[in-house]
C-alpha cells in the first residue's frame, strides 16, 4: 500500500487512517478558504448588480491578455502537480519531483506576469486613489475588488509556492516518499487556489468586453 510509506505520527495507529485524517483536515481548511473568498465574491456580486454600467466600463480597462495567459499557466501548473501527486502514490518519486519543479516554475511565472500586469495597471492610473483614470464613481469600487481579490489570491499563490519549495527541499533529500502526505496536502491547496482563480478571472476579466 502506497500510503504505508508515510511516517506514522503519534495519535494514529494506522497509516491509512492518518492519511484519511490529513486529506479530511486539508479539505476542512479548504472549505474555510472557500468561504473567505466567497465573502469577497458576495461583495463583488452585490456591487455588480448595483452598478452594471460602471463595472462594465471599469472591466474594459483590465488586461484580458495577461489574465488569459495567467489562467492558462495556472491550469497547466495544476496538470503538472496533479501528475506529481499521482506519481508519488504510485511510488515514482522521480516523476513526482519533476512535476513539482514544473509547477513551481509555472507558479513563479504566474506571479511575474501578474507583476507586469500590476505595473501596467498603475501606469494607466487604475489604482482607485487621487489620480484614478475613470469617471464613473463606482468604477473605483470595481478596482477596489480587482486589487483586493487579485492581491489576496497572489498571497495564496505565494504560500503555495512556499509549500512547493518545501516539497522540492524534501525531494532533494530523497524524502518525498516518506512525506507523500505533504504532497497530497500541497496538491489540494494548489488546486483550490486555481479554482478560485478561474472564478476571479470570470468575474474581473470578462466584464464589459
Amino acid at each position: 500500500m502506497s500510503e504505508a510509506s508515510a511516517t506514522l505520527h503519534e495519535p494514529f495507529e494506522s497509516a491509512t487512517r492518518q492519511r484519511e485524517a490529513l486529506t479530511f483536515g486539508v479539505w476542512l481548511f479548504l472549505a474555510s478558504e472557500l468561504l473567505l473568498f466567497a465573502g469577497m465574491f458576495l461583495g463583488y456580486a452585490v456591487y455588480r448588480h448595483d452598478h452594471p454600467s460602471a463595472f462594465a466600463e471599469a472591466g474594459r480597462h483590465v488586461n484580458l491578455l495577461f489574465g488569459t495567459i495567467n489562467t492558462a499557466l495556472l491550469m497547466t501548473s495544476s496538470l503538472s502537480l496533479s501528475v506529481a501527486s499521482r506519481a508519488i502514490d504510485r511510488d515514482k518519486p522521480g516523476l513526482s519531483e519533476i512535476g513539482v519543479w514544473i509547477t513551481l516554475g509555472l507558479g513563479l511565472l504566474f506571479l511575474i506576469v501578474k507583476g507586469l500586469e500590476y505595473r501596467e495597471d498603475l501606469d494607466e492610473h487604475l489604482w482607485p486613489g487621487a489620480t484614478f483614470a475613470l469617471h464613473a464613481p463606482a468604477a473605483r469600487i470595481f478596482f477596489g475588488f480587482y486589487w483586493t481579490m487579485t492581491f489576496v489570491h497572489a498571497c495564496h499563490m505565494t504560500i503555495g509556492l512556499g509549500l512547493l519549495s518545501r516539497l522540492v527541499w524534501l525531494a532533494r533529500r530523497g524524502r518525498l516518499r516518506a512525506n507523500n502526505d505533504s504532497v497530497e496536502a500541497t496538491t489540494l491547496y494548489w488546486h483550490l487556489v486555481d479554482i478560485i482563480w478561474a472564478l476571479v478571472f470570470a468575474c474581473l476579466y470578462l466584464v464589459g468586453r
Binding site: M75, S78, L79, S82, T187, H191, D194, I195, A198
Partner: peptide
C-alpha cells in the same frame, strides 16, 4: 464547469 473539472479530476 472549470471548477467542477478541477474538483473532480485534480482534487
Amino acid at each position: 464547469l472549470q471548477a467542477i473539472v478541477m474538483g473532480l479530476v485534480f482534487m
